[in-house]
């Protein structure tokens, strides 16, 4: 047994001398380094993005205004959008609280589809027109209405009636031309990394107001104020449809609006986000104005017969400190 062991031991020590050992180590080291180097060279740490950044990345400014419990959110019952928006914003102190003289304002409605107002797939032109009017009355130097629609932008703004409503109220529509997009990366984001956003329409703005309808959404459950910022994204944003909750949460990280208005006069309760039949719509007759998108969406969920647990992005946004899911804690102002 001992002899055998010794024989084996001798056998292995005889097989390789120092030179051979060093040679082999060098060869192995070079092979590992070559494979590692090639893998490192080919590895794309950022994953897919729409197209490479051609300019330095930008960051969207924080457009929010200070707000406290009791003056953050208002909920109004109305079947008339113009009256409802007027009341809801006045309950929060009037548009003058949000828009100062000479402010350059951007309003971001949902103009995703070339669909007429009667189908409820887009923001209603009455609501857009009223907000433009109120901003101008508050002294805004300019009011721009913009969105990056899913369908052809010109057709969307025309058929939805939003271009006409904007221009009649004294505002200006900016269509999403390619040159207006700049790449951005949202801090702690997994999806909005080096991704183009419609920055050109916002870069000179002092205030930004989001205006969203309440809609059922096949993938995310609902489309409301947070999802509305999807319209700022460019590129092949449809790849985000696989991670809808995550992208809506990141859109809330991306955008810090001055105010959001949730139009629940008509709610698309089924077959969203496009709908198609008027039977997909329900008269819910509510308008919400809020400095807190999370609270606005949490209330909007109730119009869809959902609660915040049905919409995981609401919890994700609250956890990140972006707002309050329990909107009642904000003591929303209502009509007396």
């Amino acid at each position: 047994m001992t002899d055998k062991h010794n024989n084996n031991s001798d056998h292995t020590t005889e097989r390789i001398d120092r030179r051979e050992f060093v040679n082999r180590c060098i060869k192995a080291g070079v092979s590992v380094a070559a494979i590692g180097g090639a893998a490192y060279y080919l590895y794309d740490a950022d994953g897919p993005s729409a197209h490479p950044a051609q300019q330095a990345e930008i960051k969207l400014p924080d457009f929010s205004v200070p707000h406290e419990i009791g003056d953050t959110m208002s909920i109004v019952s109305s079947d008339n959008r113009r009256e409802g928006i007027d009341k809801a914003i006045n309950l929060l102190g009037g548009m003058e609280r949000f828009i100062k003289p000479k402010d350059r304002v951007v309003i971001k409605p949902n103009v995703a589809f070339s669909s007429p107002p009667a189908l409820g797939a887009t923001s209603h032109p009455d609501a857009v027109g009223k907000l433009v009017e109120m901003c101008i009355k508050a002294g805004a130097a300019s009011v721009v209405v913009t969105d990056n629609p899913i369908n052809n932008p010109t057709s969307c703004f025309d058929i939805s009636g939003i271009r006409e409503a904007t221009e009649n109220a004294g505002g200006k529509v900016i269509l999403p031309e390619r040159k207006l997009f700049r790449n951005t990366t949202v801090e702690n984001a997994q999806l909005i990394k080096n991704w183009p956003v419609l920055y050109g329409a916002l870069e000179n703005a002092d205030k930004i107001i989001g205006l969203a309808p309440v809609k059922h959404h096949t993938r995310s459950g609902a489309s409301m104020t947070m999802k509305n910022w999807y319209g700022l994204l460019g590129g092949r944003r449809n790849i985000f449809h696989q991670q809808m909750n995550r992208i809506i949460y990141e859109l809330a990280l991306l955008s810090k609006p001055t105010l959001v208005v949730l139009d629940g006069v008509t709610t698309m309760v089924s077959n969203g986000p496009t709908g198609g039949s008027t039977s997909d719509l329900k008269e819910t007759n509510k308008i919400v104005a809020s400095c807190d998108m999370v609270a606005a969406d949490s209330y909007g969920a109730t119009l869809l017969g959902l609660n915040q647990e049905d919409l995981p992005y609401i919890g994700m946004a609250q956890e990140a400190g972006l707002g309050t899911a329990d909107y009642e804690k904000l003591e929303p102002r209502t009509e007396t």
Binding site: I150, N151, S223, N238, Q242, M244, P273
Partner: peptide, 11 residues
């Protein structure tokens, strides 16, 4: 398809 119907396309 998403260019026409957006969020409904995956369905």
């Amino acid at each position: 398809l998403y260019e026409k119907i957006n969020g409904k396309a995956p369905m």
